[in-house]
């Protein structure tokens, strides 16, 4: 994940506010364990009322240093080999272990081939040094409203595999992200893997993100997947599966279903339709304003960037026609 995002965008960081919240740069003392297996990790988590999992440390370390968190125990899962790696699943899907680093995702040929949208989005994740350390599981569990990985999970209808004292459970990405920095994970659970189901064969994507500086948290980001359905030979082809996800414009990444429905079934996307869809997106999102972007400005960004992104995806989708 990126640099120290401490609080959701909706609540600008007010330091040394007239409250009990102390903000300093050195972590309070904690115990540290580095289990070798998932079972041991789960046992350690269960052993303390105030334990935190650490993997890449790209968000947690700043939070510890600012003493926004003062856990008694840090469970370092970085040596649990079973949580590593990117694997193919049936139906052109991929399963990604929680300990996979952003940079591995960014450079994986499998990811680039099956989910070029993830490949592109990964390049917007902070800076290389952070991508080298930060893990996929960490990003998803931290659930920053302006992080790319959670957005990808929501866009691609990913399933998150969660291990807990009672075994494994699966959560749909849409149900996993509950709010800014808030997920469906229980204190004693560990996110172990994320599964991206394969996309329809004839599909195209587009991704765009805007931040003040390269590597910053997005003020707005849009990702789109468009797919053909119907019979190409009889000329009955039309747009089938449509996914539109935005982030930076709400507490969690959001899918804009009303906009998706407007496009699904269309045979052609022209400028008026693009504008209509973008307007729906602008009017559907509920962005918060902060120091860097007002809610109105974020709506504006969502509007213009959606139009551009959809246009790109549509152009790419048209290019897919002749292949089959």
């Amino acid at each position: 994940m990126k640099a120290a995002r401490l609080l959701p965008k909706s609540a600008p960081l007010v330091l040394l506010a007239a409250s009990d919240r102390e903000v300093i740069m050195k972590p309070a003392a904690f115990d540290y364990e580095r289990p070798q297996t998932l079972d041991d990790a789960l046992k350690l988590l269960a052993s303390s009322d105030n334990a935190k999992i650490i993997a890449g440390g790209q968000s947690l370390m700043p939070m510890l240093n600012f003493r926004l968190l003062a856990p008694e125990l840090l469970v370092d899962i970085s040596r649990i080999d079973e949580l590593r790696g990117i694997r193919e699943t049936k139906g052109r899907g991929l399963s990604v272990g929680a300990l996979t680093r952003h940079h591995e995702m960014e450079t994986s040929k499998l990811v680039e081939e099956r989910f070029p949208v993830i490949h592109e989005a990964m390049q917007y994740v902070a800076h290389l040094a952070i991508r080298n350390r930060g893990t996929i599981g960490g990003s998803l569990s931290h659930a920053d409203p302006a992080a790319e990985l959670p957005m990808m999970a929501v866009l691609l209808d990913a399933h998150l595999h969660v291990a807990g004292p009672n075994g494994l459970r699966q959560v749909a990405a849409r149900d996993f992200f509950l709010g800014a920095l808030t997920t469906d994970l229980e204190e004693n659970e560990i996110l172990v893997q994320v599964e991206f189901p394969g996309l329809p064969k004839r599909s195209a994507y587009a991704f765009d993100e805007f931040a003040q500086r390269s590597g910053d948290f997005a003020l707005c980001s849009v990702a789109v997947i468009l797919s053909w359905s119907g019979n190409f030979l009889t000329g009955g082809k039309k747009i089938g599966d449509v996914r539109i996800a935005l982030m930076g414009v709400d507490e969690t990444p959001v899918r804009i279903e009303v906009a998706e429905q407007l496009l699904s079934g269309a045979k052609h996307i022209d400028d008026p339709l693009l504008e209509q869809v973008a307007s729906v997106i602008r009017d559907t999102i509920q962005p918060n304003g902060d120091l860097h972007a007002s809610a109105d400005y974020r709506r504006h960004l969502a509007y213009t960037m959606s139009q551009q992104t959809l246009k790109t995806a549509w152009q790419r989708l048209q290019g897919q026609t002749d292949e089959d």
Partner: peptide, 12 residues
């Protein structure tokens, strides 16, 4: 009188 930009996330 609270500083809203007391980190390098917000002081750009």
């Amino acid at each position: 009188g609270q500083n809203l930009t007391a980190s390098l996330v917000d002081y750009v």
